[in-house]
Design a protein around this nucleic acid. Structure first.
Length: 412
RNA sequence: GGGCGGAUACCCAAGUGGUCAACGGGAGCAGACUGUAAAUCUGUUGGCUAAGCCUGCGGAGGUUCAAAUCCUUCUCCGCCCA
């Protein structure tokens, strides 16, 4: 591959952890990275500005859901997903493969593709590998995913083998169908918890050749040790010079474990969904904000957190908002959880760079705080840069210009 | 003063002789959530020395093998008539 968009910057000496940079049509992302999930062209409750504030570098969208509503042609007419939702940074779309799994009772799988019955109105829809790529081309994400089958649990060996082989044939078809050079198409490795199948899946998917590889079909209900075992086996089989994406995982512990196995990219609904359901990740462990014990707790959600929510609001207030089902609760809690995940990733990158990752691996809270320190340093340097720029501008501009600017700011 | 209707668990409310510690909803309490059919879902909510026992459907008394349910009476609430 001559045009490798992924640059490996450093690999940890004690684990498989790596840091790198992935170039996309909408900018570079730093790996390991967490990608907030924005299924329907929105990370629920967050504006793009919110997302940038907390350090989001790339988000997810979903092919199946956007195809159903508003329809990929509408998004295309809008100028693509980025313009449609006013998000300037990179986007990755999932192919709809996960809906093959999650909408189990509503679909039928054939070699050709998958027939879905819309959960919205019961109407029938057919998505093939070619169709998924066509939709994803129209949506215009920077990274798009091959259409795969994510087999349910339990599935026997024969089914897993058959399914994995079909996913390979689909991967080939996706590659054939994909045209847009501005979009990187990633392949997906399947094979359930069967190592032999995972190995074949990796080899054959790599043989087809993609700029990045994902591990799918994990965290679908299996026991965690088995998931870790499968992950630890599969991730190191992937080509070192390509980005590795673990789909749909997971808890903060899962991410750190995945990184130690060599995973570079993650997405998961957990921080956003759990936030809306009142379950928060903090350096002191999980906080279920609805619990009565927080009724008169006037301390921050996480005393070690520098996010907007923790800097400004108390647990008692957040509990009140959540119990009352106020919209603001969902937003503030989502921002906190996402910030936690993103800080964790910053901390991990820093630790890998410093060579302390292996030592800090078990200390999620410590890694998260480390991430926040580097965030603070970044923000301060950005501020001082801006201040310097501002003072330079003042020297050149007339005083009336600057007071005009002030007045305009006051008016808004 | 008379007539009629009502009083059920934290709130609303169903039940009108045994299968009722009592349907359902709200609220409370707790838990779950992993490429989002998810601001969703699940469990639980009289007490206890807990596969059993005790208390309990406004209070008191009665009928019955058995009462939230039938009878008497009292209290309170609503409507109507004087």
């Amino acid at each position: 591959m001559t045009d490798n968009k992924f640059t490996l910057i450093h690999t940890d000496s004690q684990t498989q952890a790596r840091i790198g940079k992935l170039r996309t049509a909408h900018g570079v992302i730093n790996t390991p990275i967490f990608m907030p999930v924005g299924t329907r062209a929105t990370v629920k409750t967050c504006t793009p500005h919110d997302l940038v504030e907390i350090g989001t570098e790339i988000i997810l969208g979903n092919t199946y859901h956007l195809y159903l509503r508003p329809g990929h042609r509408i998004v295309e007419q809008a100028g693509g997903l980025h313009k449609f939702m006013a998000w300037k940074k990179p986007v990755l779309t999932d192919s709809g493969g996960f809906q093959v799994f999650s909408l189990g009772p509503l679909r039928t799988i054939t070699e050709d593709g998958v027939e879905f019955r819309s959960e919205i109105d019961g109407s029938k829809h057919f998505i093939s590998p070619e169709r998924s790529i066509e939709i994803q081309n129209a949506l215009g994400a920077d990274i798009i995913m091959a259409f795969d089958e994510c087999p349910p649990l339990p599935s026997d060996y024969d089914y897993l083998k058959q399914s994995m082989e079909m996913t390979l044939r689909w991967a080939e078809r996706c590659k054939q169908a994909h045209r847009n050079p501005n979009q990187q198409l990633f392949g997906i490795v399947q094979g359930g918890m069967e190592k032999s199948l995972r190995k074949i899946s990796v080899e054959k998917t790599v043989e087809i050749g993609f700029p990045g590889y994902a591990i799918g079909g994990l965290s679908v209900g299996e026991e965690k040790p088995l998931m870790y075992e499968t992950l630890a086996y599969t991730a190191p089989l992937l080509p070192k010079d390509s980005p590795h994406y673990l789909m749909g995982v997971g808890t903060p512990e899962d991410l750190v474990y995945g990184i130690s196995c060599g995973v570079d990219m993650f997405d998961c609904v957990m921080p956003t969904r759990n936030a809306r359901n009142g379950s928060l990740f903090t350096t002191l462990g999980t906080v279920k904000i609805r619990n009565a014990k927080y009724k008169a707790d006037f301390t921050p959600l996480d005393p070690n957190c520098i996010c907007h929510t923790c800097q400004n609001f108390t647990r008692a207030y957040l509990r009140h908002l959540h119990v009352e089902n106020e919209i603001l609760a969902h937003r503030l809690l989502t921002l906190h959880n996402l910030h936690f995940y993103l800080s964790l990733m910053r901390g991990v990158r820093q630790a890998i760079l410093e060579g302390t990752f292996a030592r800090l691996k078990e200390d999620i809270g410590g890694l998260m705080q480390r991430g926040q320190r580097s965030e603070q340093i970044e923000t301060e340097s950005a501020k001082s840069k801006a201040a310097k720029k501002d003072s330079r501008n003042k020297q050149h501009k007339s005083s009336t210009g600057s007071s005009n600017r002030k007045r305009r700011r006051a008016a808004t």
